[in-house]
Structure formats: C-alpha cells, structure tokens
Nucleic acid binder design. Structure first.
Lengths: 193, 193
DNA sequence: TCAATAGTTGAACGATCACTCAACTATTGT
DNA sequence: ACAATAGTTGAGTGATCGTTCAACTATTGA
C-alpha cells in the first residue's frame, strides 16, 4: 500500500559502501553520500535512520559480497588447500595493484571506529567470524583428504590466516611492490605445508 | 631573544599523540587537542601550523618511541632470534590485553588517511621501513650466528614479520582471547625455525 | 630603560557537519 | 473517486568544524 520507494536498496548500499570504503567513516559526509546515492537527505534518513545506520547497512552489504567472493574462490579450486593458496596468491597481487590502498572495509572499520562503537564492533566481528569459518572448513577438508598434515591445528591455522589477511590489507596500504607482496604470501603459505 | 615558549614540545606531542591514537585523525577535533594539551588554539597553530602539522609531529613522536621500544626488546634478549620471539610473544599478550583495540598509530594511519594524503603516506612508510630494518638486522645476525637456517631469506622474513605485526594489530582490535592471540603468534613464529 | 621580538590569549570567523520537517507527490485499497 | 498511506523534496536547523587575529604579555639585546 501507498507509494513504493523509487530507489533500489542494493544500488544505494553499493554506492554508499564505495564512498565509506574510499574515504572512511568519519571523513565521509552526508553531503557526499547524498551526491553518491542521488537520494535527498530525507529519503536517506527515512530508509536508514542515520549516518551510522546507513554505514551498518553498507557494512553488511560489503560483508555479504566478501563472503560470496571467498566462497567462490575456495570452491573454484581443484582441492581445498589449492583454494586457499589461490586466494592468498591472488590477494598478494591485489595488494600490489592500483586499486590497493583502500584495504578492506571490515579491516578499516575495526581500526577506525569499532573501538568506539560497540554495535559496529559486534557487527564487524560477526562478519569476520563468518569468513574465518570458511577457511576453517576448507582446512578441515584439506586435513580429511590428506592434503594438510594431520599434526596441524586447523583452528590455529584459520586464526593465523585471518591475521595474515589483515596484515596483507595493511601491506596493500603501503603501496608495496609486487615482489614484496609475493614474498610475504610465499612465506605465510609455507605454514600450510 | 624575545619570549620563550611556555610549553615543553615533547609534553604537547605526547598528549596530542594519545588523543590521535585513541580517536583517530578525523574523529579528533582541534577542541579536544586544545583540551588535552592545555594550549590555546593560537599557540598550537603558531607551533605546528595546522591540525595536519600537529598530527605529523605527533606521528614522528610515536614512531620514535616505537623504534626505541623495539630496539630495546631486540637488544634485551640473549640472542637475536630470541629477541624477535620475545617481541612477538609479548605482542600477542598485548593484543589480548585491556589496552588493545587502539592498535598502533602507524597502522591506523595507513588505513585511515595515508591513502588520501601523500605527505602522511610517505612519512608513515619511512617509519615502517625504519622498524623493518631493525628486524632485518636481527634476522641477519641470527643467520650469521647459526640460529636461523642458512636457506631462509631474511628480507622476505622481515617483510613477513612486518605484515604479521600489522595483522596482530588488527587482531587486537577484535578483542580476541589470550588463547587466540597466543595460537596466532605460535603459528607465525614457526616460520623462524 | 625600552624598542624589538616572540609567545599567549580567547573571542570570533565562515564553512561544513549530521540531521529535520512541512509541503508535496505518487500509489494504495475500497 | 478519494481518503489513507508512504516516499520525496530541499531549504533550513543548531552545533561544531579547523582556523584566524588583534590585543596582550613576557623576554630579549643594546
């Protein structure tokens, strides 16, 4: 009943996400979100309550895409361990690429605002846990099929891989050379042997 | 000649650094810096030109302390490799401690503003390179005295250790359990065996 | 002793911040 | 056809942003 919304929620979230990702939460003004989404302030507030509300929705949107992308990467390989290797090799390339520097919205959020905002903190942690679960699942599968040595600890390795992802995201922010990111990825991947 | 400054530059930088560290660059207002330093706006601008100028000075102040702390940690151990191990074990404990969450000012800066500010980017990268040089030096020493296997690549390991530091800083921002940080540190330290 | 110099002070600046709201428009069920 | 409902609009809110500056104070060399 009544007038339907004239915008696609996902379109708006995608655009808002890009702005938050590019500039960070605090450096992003409502004015720039109004620009990016082509919505008027009133429509944004009607749909998302506040800047924080829009950010949380954009964060969820980002996490959803992230999880899907990682799932695809892991499933696209011949074996679980190959999937993990490919993911990190690709991540090393990305970190040295042009698009680098904006890191990962979840990581940026942990460092910029999660500490000062419990709601954001919990939301980010939940998304990160979802991603870690994907790696843990792959590591267990690798151990089950003999790819990963039985004496390895999948949970510890999954936590380590997450920490490595975060480190690589920061590395990407330092405008590293491809050789440098390659070397780092090669080092950390030897822990899977 | 003329009236001497009434404040100690290092005192002011220490206080400003704490605020930037706690809240991030964009979330820190000049008003809060005025509060923290007990200087009036005019004095701050006379001494540091701008918020960015004060931030850069505070960043240098932070890096100076960081380098000194790492030097001390590495020099305080019986052997070079022990120094590195101790440093990371201690870092794991810190990341799980109460003070966690504010990560490291250099890492925060890489992700929050370095991308949008070339001057900041270069300054942070220089400080990070200084720290990496300390680890590289220790790794070479470890290799020279037989602690580190000759087939290891010190430069690649140093880059990996830096990436691990950054990862641990983000890990600290997720309010992890001590067991979790310990597991991650144990994993990454096996690369030195 | 005193002009010159440098630091201090805090009120005030225009710009921008996140956000609101009353008027308006489109779509609904009846 | 029309009242009820929901979405849109954009000018406008007070607050706060980073920054400035003219008046003032302390210290200097001569």
């Amino acid at each position: 009943m009544a007038r339907p919304a004239q915008f696609e929620r996902d379109d708006v979230l995608e655009k808002a996400m890009q702005v938050f990702w590019e500039q960070g939460y605090n450096a992003t003004s409502m004015a720039s979100l109004v620009d990016a989404t082509s919505l008027k302030p009133g429509s944004i507030y009607a749909a998302f309550d506040s800047k924080e509300g829009l950010f949380l929705a954009a964060l969820d949107h980002y996490a959803q895409q992230s999880v899907a992308r990682i799932k695809r990467a892991l499933a696209g390989a011949d074996t679980p361990l190959q999937g993990i290797r490919n993911f990190f090799l690709n991540m090393g390339k990305e970190a040295a690429g042009e698009c680098a520097g904006r890191s990962c919205l979840l990581v940026n959020t942990v460092l910029e605002i999660a500490r000062q905002n419990e709601m954001v903190q919990k939301r980010v942690n939940r998304h990160l846990a979802d991603i870690e679960a994907l790696f843990l699942h792959a590591l267990k599968a690798a151990q089950a099929n003999g790819e990963l040595l039985p004496d390895k600890d999948p949970k510890a390795l999954a936590a380590f891989l997450m920490t490595s992802i975060w480190g690589l995201r920061v590395l990407g922010g330092t405008k590293p050379t491809p050789a440098r990111t390659k070397a780092v990825v090669n080092q950390l991947l030897t822990l899977l042997d």
